[in-house]
Amino acid sequence: MTPDETAGGLMAALGDLIRIDDRTVLVRGQELDLGHDQPDVANALVHRAGDLLVLVDTGVTEAFRTALREAAEGLGPWSRVLVLTTHGHADHIGNNDLADELGGTAEHYVPALDLDQMRDPVSYWVRSFERIAGVAPLPPPPVLAGKLVSLFEPMRPFGATTRTYEERPPERIRIGSIRFTGWTFADGAVRVLRSQGHCAGHVIVHLRDPGVLHLSDEGNGPCGAMADADQLKIQTTLGAVARLFEEGEAALLTDGHTFAVRRGAEAVSHLDGLLEQATALQAAALRLAGEGAGADGRVRPSAFAARYAEVTAELGVGGANPNPMFAAMMAVNQLRELGLRPESGEADAPWSRPAPDHPAPPGPPAPPEA
């Protein structure tokens, strides 16, 4: 199956191998389906740079592990293995210990800022769901977090060779006219670029020789859903990546969840579309917050989230794994992006805009001394 055929919408399934060139394969994941106890599985890239086998993310499930092995065997021979984790969410890290089983000298790197959630994913998701308690009709946060994390089995996020990227000296990386910071491997053939938008530790990966830019989850939609998402960093990353395609420094765009390989102008159009959706959605959110606010300017997040979901549908805004859970998380993030803050930690507590602290007006001048 070719990249163009995949982008054109042919039916594909978990673990399908989408050949990009004779040294690069995209391994297809799947969508989240909580109703049927199906975990989402992120796409992974398998690439050979000389004698180095590179895996960008490892998904989850035994079926996906088998597909990764098949992809690796089809790209041999190699004598070294490098596994790069783009971020610590469970759908990207379940088979990370494969680094130690493929043979040869192995290295595995993960973002330091995501170590806590990799060690204790339930606590990470409890914190995420506590923000939407009462906003959407969902089970209590500990129950929902436990159910969600239980889908991602077996979970092997660490291996004998796991280290953090941050243990390596940071590098200034220039690609075309764009400057990044990050780390390079294989004499610059593999570039790990810090982005940190989708979650705190997120990185994206550029494979120089095939011209692949793997966005992972930075392109999951126009508004990040996670509690540690940074909307500005998401949008800055999308803009920088679009520029790389315009300059011919990247040729193929892949990501974690859309199951497509986009070329050149199509990639730019896709990225511009996400940025246009982000601005349109924030403008709509500002209007909704004004319409839904009481006379005191307070906004009830549950009411805002319901209207926000309607507006996203009207605007045709998509994203990875659309469902009420992520829609509510996006709505809460959008309120914060507008500058509103919750007035308390209670479920569905009203949000309001903090008043600026203006200095007290000066008093009357003191009478002149006699």
Results as ranks from 00 to 15, higher is better:
Thr164His: 02
Glu314Asn: 09
Gly219Val: 08
Gly239Asp: 05
Pro367Asn: 08
Asn321Tyr: 15
Ser177Lys: 09
Ala229Asn: 11
Ala309Asp: 12
Asp209Pro: 09
Gln30Cys: 11
Thr237Ser: 07
Gly15Phe: 09
Ala240Arg: 15
Gly211Arg: 01
Gly76His: 05
Ala366Asn: 09
Arg156Phe: 14
Glu291Val: 14
Ile93Asn: 13
Ala7Tyr: 06
Gly35Phe: 08
Ile173Asn: 02
Met226Pro: 00
Glu130Tyr: 11
Thr184Asp: 08
Arg336Phe: 07
Arg307Cys: 10
Ile18Glu: 14
Val110Lys: 04
Ser344Met: 07
Ile132Pro: 01
Gln231His: 12
Ala136His: 11
Leu207Gln: 13
Ser216Met: 10
Pro39Leu: 08
Asp116Ala: 15
Met155Asp: 11
Val135Leu: 04
Ala250Cys: 08
Asp187Arg: 14
Trp351Arg: 10
Ser269Leu: 13
Phe129Lys: 06
Ala280Glu: 13
Thr184Pro: 09
Asp97Ala: 12
Val27His: 05
Thr58Ala: 05
Tyr165His: 07
Ala328Pro: 06
Val60Phe: 05
Ser79Leu: 11
Ala71Phe: 07
Val241Ala: 01
Pro170Ala: 14
Ile132Glu: 08
Ser79Ala: 14
Cys223Ser: 13
Gly88Glu: 01
Pro364Glu: 13
Ala280Ile: 07
Arg353His: 13
Ala106Tyr: 11
Pro157Tyr: 04
Gly294Pro: 04
Leu274Phe: 02
Ala267Val: 05
Leu138Cys: 08
Val261Arg: 01
Lys147Pro: 00
Gly29Pro: 01
Leu138Gln: 07
Gly345Glu: 14
Thr86Pro: 10
Leu14Tyr: 06
Gly363Tyr: 09
Val192Trp: 07
Val41Leu: 04
Leu274Gly: 02
Tyr165Glu: 00
Arg19Trp: 13
Arg69Pro: 00
Glu249Thr: 00
Thr184Val: 09
Gln196Ile: 10
Ala90Asp: 10
Glu346Tyr: 10
Asp116Trp: 10
Val212Ala: 02
Ala200Lys: 13
Gly134Met: 13
Leu68Ile: 05
Ala136Ser: 14
Glu247Thr: 03
Arg179Leu: 14
Arg179Tyr: 02
Pro142Trp: 09
Ile234Leu: 15
Val299Lys: 09
Glu167Leu: 03
Glu246Asn: 07
Thr258Leu: 11
Leu213Thr: 04
Leu115Arg: 13
Thr254Leu: 01
Ile175Trp: 05
Asn96Met: 03
Met155Asn: 15
His358Glu: 15
Glu171Ser: 00
Gly290Trp: 12
Leu238Lys: 04
Ala309Ile: 04
Thr254Glu: 01
Arg262Pro: 04
Pro140Arg: 15
Phe185Lys: 08
Met329Val: 03
Arg353Gly: 06
Pro141Leu: 06
Met155Lys: 07
